[in-house]
Amino acid sequence: MEFNEILERVQDVFRDVLENEDIVLTSQTTANDVEDWDSLNHIQLVVAIEKDFKIRFTSHEIQSWKNVGKMVDCIVKKKA
């Protein structure tokens, strides 16, 4: 799967979990840019992404994400 395809799917997950159809993600997006992306919702986002893509992250991987782009990079590697 390609980066942009995954980014779009991650965006759908964000919209679903955070119940906000207006969310637009880019590579540079961080938690500070998305309303309601707090620590509890972060858990729900990770769980939903792991389910949606049928992958599992490690806590080390999650801690290394500086923005959505890094998250998507991680998914790209797992789906390669």
Partner: peptide, 11 residues
Amino acid sequence: TNIFESVNAIE
């Protein structure tokens, strides 16, 4: 049914 070790969550 599910364990999400990355975020210490269990379903």
